[in-house]
Amino acid sequence: MLSTVLLIVLGMVMVALLLNLWRLFRGPSTPDRILALDTLYLNAIALIVLFGLWKDAALYFEAALLIALLGFVSTVALCKYLLRGDIIE
């Protein structure tokens, strides 16, 4: 049962990923796109964790942790760029 559930959840996450991408392409404003990118990072974490469960490999958790950290940093940097232009001032 669990394998089936895993596949279903993976499918859901993939659909979510594509929807994010649609928003990223569609815009219309830059904050929208940043939001889409941020969500894309979140969904990538979900994807990588689920994939790790599916393939039964623990190697992916570092990657998930790093995506969480780096996604945050890049979102903040992008927002700062919109607000102030100069991200390190």
Binding site: M1, L2, V5, L6, I8, V9, L10, M12, V13, V15, A16, L17, L19, N20, W22, R23, S29, P31, D32, L35, A36, T39, L42, N43, A46, L50
Partner: peptide, 25 residues
């Protein structure tokens, strides 16, 4: 476990649908 994962997947999907469907930023 199935419940947790399904719930998670559902919310992620709902979030993405909301991102697409809702009217303004």
């Amino acid at each position: 476990l199935s419940a947790l994962l399904l719930l998670g997947g559902l919310f992620v999907l709902i979030g993405a649908i909301g991102l697409v469907r809702l009217p303004d930023f």
